[in-house]
Write a protein that binds this DNA or RNA. Structure first.
Lengths: 189, 189
DNA sequence: AAAGAAGCTTGATGTAGATCAAGTGATAGC
DNA sequence: GCTATCACTTGATCTACATCAAGCTTCTTT
């Protein structure tokens, strides 16, 4: 039932049956059809969500009403508006399912309490945060120094699975280009 | 002697004289002329540095030999290659003084030890990390959704001090544009 | 005080990628 | 199984910004 979550935790920390049970007790399971909202801008993002099945994206909308995909998460990944989760500020992001999905939701209240009960989770969250940090730093570097074509090539290398599962216009947005431009890049390559 | 550092810590946490003394005992003071390296790519960044006086920048160099300014730090700010500091991987960044500067260096060894001796510092570092995270997320949003002119206008609003102290071609790089383009933008505005 | 380096501006030209517009093919949900 | 929305492609045009090149000014260092 919670095998994938357990596996995910054990990629980062050692956790006993007993400790894992404490985590599981605090989890809420959520099943969502495709294109359903998990978070809307202005909400308080008081959870982190683990993707057990399906796929999601987080995105922002700027003043010109343009969407920008920030994160794509398939199975075995965590998604949240970490900024809002950490600071308590209103969310800047929307989070939405791409395919219909099965999620395991860990609310912030529980997290605070769990950190006392299961101290090894401190390490887990530290890793979660620093991974998120490193990912965003990488992304800046990426956008700064690569052309649209190179960014697409990197994506093929690092996330070939996205191409099977995620509509191309989301991928284009994630890579910081228009769908038209991505289409033309794919035609050449 | 360490007034500015104390003030900086107290912006984020409450710290007693005794605790602060423990911190200070672990600090190394460093005085650098302008344009001197503090960190080179490939080094292990095993410190965080507090700017007591002067200014620094961190930057990367891409395959095309182009520099990209990642962070600018004036007095009362911290600078590091946090990615390398956190993960222990070799640094991706260079750090260099812009003006001649006075730095307070906190080595990682000391940090680990200090976290045991002065638990309140856990909070300080959590805040330091999450500020860094939020800053990079903001920067992505910024670059994604604003034009070169708008990015410059935001900078004027948020960091007017940079304009007095930091050469314009570093600012241009920080904003993700060429010096020529920044020059033309300033001419119009 | 002089010489060199660093910093800034201006003009001419080039180009990656955006925007606009239209049409075709695929999917989901009733 | 039908219909509407969604997804993708292709072409024509436009534009923000980069690149290249040159000259001027202002600092730094000796």
């Amino acid at each position: 039932m919670y095998d994938l979550l357990r596996k995910n935790l054990e990629e980062k920390i050692k956790i006993s049956d007993e400790e894992f049970l404490k985590v599981v007790r605090n989890i809420r399971r959520s099943t969502l059809k495709r294109k359903k909202d998990l978070l809307r801008k202005g909400d308080h993002c008081d959870f982190v969500a683990f993707v057990e099945k399906g796929s999601l994206r987080s995105y922002s909308i700027d003043e010109r009403e343009t969407e920008h995909v920030i994160q794509i998460a398939l199975e075995n990944n965590w998604i949240s508006d970490l900024r809002s989760f950490i600071t308590g500020d209103p969310a800047q992001l929307y989070i939405e399912t791409i395919e219909s999905s099965e999620l395991l939701i860990l609310p912030r209240n529980s997290v605070n309490q769990l950190l006392d009960e299961v101290p090894i989770l401190e390490k887990f969250f530290r890793i979660l945060y620093s991974n998120a940090y490193v990912a965003t730093v990488d992304r800046i570097q990426h956008n700064i120094s690569l052309s649209a074509t190179e960014r697409y090539e990197q994506l093929i290398k690092n996330h070939p699975d996205y191409l099977q599962r995620v509509p191309l216009h989301y991928i284009a947005s994630y890579l910081g280009m228009t769908p038209e431009n991505l289409s033309r890049i794919r035609k050449q390559g």
